Simulated assay, not measured.
Amino acid sequence: MSWLSRVRNGIQSLTKRQSADNLWHKCRKCESMVFTKEWEDNLYVCPRCDHHDRVGPKVRFDALFDRQKYEILDSPEVREDPLKFRDTKRYTDRLKAARSSTEERDALINAFGKIEGKLAVVGVQDFAFMGGSMGVAVGAAFVIGVKQAIKKRCPYILFTAAGGARMQEGILSLMQMPRTTVALAQLREAGLPYIVVLTDPTTGGVTASYAMLGDVQIAEPGALIGFAGQRVIEQTIREKLPEGFQRAEYLLEHGMIDMVVHRHALKDRLARLVGYLAPSGAKAAA
């Protein structure tokens, strides 16, 4: 094979690999092909149909905190696999796989920093970590976030994204519902606000507890928010439900949430809410 053929074949191989893996993103809603760089620069929002894709803690923190400067709060140590659970895989193996793919300890990560100069503790549930499911570690992380907010005299802002309780932890997972509710009571006793941003999807026991207890309930456009799935509800009540009845816009129209805010406007909206609701101490230097 001549050197010209080798170079040509190498360029064709490189171009094919980049096109398939790096250059293009296919929108899950409108199925348009968008340059990955354009999609990422647009905060993972489709520039064609405005579909808000799911993002993890790092993207959230970088977009929210001033100059992308923030402190990640330590994840609490909890007992793993307390029920020695196994389905098609061992629970410990599922945890290892989730940690390997996300490089996070569990599904809820907290960070402390400034949003437009105002202090805040922000928690983000990562749907990529076992569907953002609520287990003992998530409950413990939530409590840590609330305690840090009380210590710093600033709001606790939570971005929810979950399929519900973590079945591999059984009743221990469900116990996180009252546990987080008690922590929020302590936050309110301290006179500090709790702001929730509901992202796609927020369902199950998370919706039945801390996701719907915010002083202000915000949702991203098109976010799926509910307790049970549409098919389950229809089979239970034996009625056909309205189109999109569990989407953010429908819930806003029917008074379940306070506002739907585009991802590009979230930082400004949260900063204004913190300014309205938080004590003057929230503006102090970190």
Results as ranks from 00 to 15, higher is better:
residue 1 M to K: 02
residue 4 L to M: 09
residue 7 V to Q: 05
residue 8 R to S: 13
residue 11 I to P: 04
residue 13 S to Y: 14
residue 16 K to G: 06
residue 21 D to E: 13
residue 22 N to G: 01
residue 22 N to V: 12
residue 24 W to S: 03
residue 26 K to L: 06
residue 27 C to R: 07
residue 28 R to W: 11
residue 39 W to M: 14
residue 40 E to D: 11
residue 41 D to K: 13
residue 47 P to M: 03
residue 49 C to K: 05
residue 51 H to G: 00
residue 54 R to W: 05
residue 55 V to L: 04
residue 56 G to Q: 06
residue 56 G to W: 02
residue 59 V to K: 00
residue 62 D to P: 08
residue 64 L to H: 02
residue 64 L to T: 02
residue 65 F to H: 12
residue 68 Q to L: 02
residue 69 K to H: 14
residue 69 K to L: 15
residue 71 E to L: 13
residue 73 L to Q: 08
residue 74 D to E: 15
residue 77 E to A: 14
residue 78 V to I: 13
residue 79 R to Y: 07
residue 86 R to H: 13
residue 88 T to W: 14
residue 89 K to S: 12
residue 91 Y to E: 08
residue 92 T to C: 12
residue 95 L to W: 12
residue 95 L to E: 11
residue 97 A to C: 02
residue 98 A to S: 14
residue 98 A to I: 01
residue 100 S to L: 11
residue 101 S to C: 12
residue 104 E to C: 00
residue 104 E to Y: 02
residue 105 R to C: 08
residue 108 L to I: 04
residue 109 I to E: 04
residue 114 K to F: 01
residue 117 G to C: 07
residue 118 K to Y: 10
residue 122 V to S: 04
residue 122 V to A: 03
residue 123 G to P: 09
residue 124 V to E: 03
residue 126 D to T: 11
residue 129 F to M: 03
residue 131 G to E: 08
residue 135 G to M: 10
residue 138 V to L: 14
residue 138 V to Y: 07
residue 140 A to T: 02
residue 146 V to N: 02
residue 150 I to P: 04
residue 151 K to L: 13
residue 152 K to S: 12
residue 152 K to E: 15
residue 152 K to P: 06
residue 153 R to V: 09
residue 154 C to P: 06
residue 156 Y to V: 01
residue 157 I to C: 00
residue 162 A to V: 04
residue 163 G to P: 03
residue 166 R to S: 03
residue 167 M to V: 12
residue 167 M to G: 10
residue 168 Q to E: 15
residue 170 G to T: 12
residue 173 S to L: 03
residue 174 L to Q: 09
residue 175 M to P: 09
residue 176 Q to S: 09
residue 177 M to F: 06
residue 178 P to S: 03
residue 180 T to K: 00
residue 180 T to W: 06
residue 181 T to W: 09
residue 183 A to T: 02
residue 188 R to Q: 04
residue 190 A to R: 05
residue 195 I to G: 01
residue 200 D to Q: 05
residue 208 A to R: 09
residue 208 A to T: 07
residue 208 A to H: 14
residue 212 M to F: 05
residue 212 M to R: 03
residue 214 G to E: 10
residue 216 V to L: 08
residue 219 A to I: 06
residue 220 E to D: 11
residue 225 I to H: 10
residue 225 I to W: 05
residue 225 I to M: 10
residue 226 G to Q: 08
residue 226 G to T: 07
residue 228 A to H: 12
residue 229 G to K: 08
residue 229 G to Q: 08
residue 230 Q to N: 01
residue 233 I to L: 11
residue 241 L to V: 10
residue 248 A to S: 15
residue 250 Y to I: 06
residue 251 L to C: 03
residue 260 V to F: 03
residue 260 V to L: 06
residue 260 V to G: 00
residue 260 V to D: 04
residue 265 A to L: 14
residue 266 L to W: 10
residue 266 L to Q: 08
residue 268 D to Y: 08
residue 269 R to A: 13
residue 270 L to C: 04
residue 271 A to D: 00
residue 272 R to N: 14
residue 274 V to D: 01
residue 275 G to C: 09
